[in-house]
Simulated scan of single mutants.
Amino acid sequence: MSEEFLISAKPDLQKARADWLASLKEERRLARLTLEAYERDTRQFLQFLTGHCGGAPGLSDIAEMRPADLRAFLAARRADGAGARTLGRGLAGIRSLLRFLERKGLANAAGAGALRAPRAPKGLPKPLTAADARRVASGEGQLAEEPWIAARNAAVLALLYGSGLRIGEALGLKGADIPAMRSGSLRVTGKGSKVRIVPVLPVVAEAVAEYQRLCPYPLGNDAPLFRGARGGQLQPAIIQREMRKMRSALNLPDTATPHALRHSFATHLLGRGGDLRAIQELLGHASLSTTQVYTAVDTSRLLEIYEKAHPRA
């Protein structure tokens, strides 16, 4: 984890925090985005403590952290506009840091454990309709001027909907993954370095093959599969920007995002009788409860159809 930011803490706490971040990366193997969020959240916490304690905090200042101190931090973050999900994640990072220090005999994590996280509103995933998802995944409505870039975008979107990949998983593929896609399956490394096998439909493999044919850059085994305009690894922001353009061109709702294609993958499988456990494995969810949210999506859609169609509704 990069330490390019100035940390408001004494050297002993800076070192302990760096050791904690290293353990999250090397031992717990947390996803890169989660690590970045924990680094940012704890950095903001230490900046708050600098004002709260009247100076840069050290290990002695957080050794007996009280719930009141943490509540003051959460209140300050809320005043800055942070929502319940952000506050909950921030509290989770602080708890993790304090538990790490407690195991080393440097702090007491009981105060953080006694504090309840802010309750985030429960929202259901918002998938696209099957027709709209097919239009997006086929590349319809693209405005890319260069054919190879249009083919690249279509291949990425086809993988998101056809195989249920996260955008980071799709953009993390290498040239060595092309033969596997031709054979109809793909090994994907997801969150927490969890490996799963996902199917690759013939239409998805064809989209990747068309991109490979048009791509002006060599797609070596160890090189990124999806390239930016200058040949570097394609960044998620490029696909997200392209999706915003397609929303306008295809008259799609604002909820039509790259991640909505993954939601659509799960919801449409479930609606066609897919087994919930199988969908859990395909999505790479650690817990079945995470996958079960799609049953609520499917039920709400059925009720919506019922209310519109039933003569007595």
Rank of each mutant, 00 (worst) to 15 (best):
E4L: 10
E4K: 05
I7R: 15
S8T: 04
E27R: 12
L33W: 04
T34V: 02
T42S: 11
G54H: 01
L59M: 05
I62R: 02
F73T: 03
L74Y: 00
R78A: 03
R85S: 00
L87F: 04
L87W: 02
G90I: 00
L91T: 03
L98F: 07
R99G: 11
L101R: 07
N108F: 04
N108W: 02
G113E: 14
G113S: 09
P125R: 05
A131N: 11
A131V: 13
V136M: 09
A137F: 03
G139M: 07
L143A: 14
P147C: 01
R152K: 05
S163A: 14
G172A: 10
G172V: 14
G172F: 09
L186Q: 06
G192S: 09
V198S: 03
L201Y: 09
E210L: 13
E210W: 03
L219F: 05
L219T: 06
R244P: 08
K245L: 10
N251E: 11
S264Y: 06
S264I: 10
A266M: 08
T267N: 07
L269I: 08
R272D: 15
G273W: 14
R277N: 10
L288E: 04
Q292L: 07
V293S: 01
K308F: 02
K308N: 13
A309T: 13
H310W: 12
H310D: 06
P311K: 14
R312N: 15
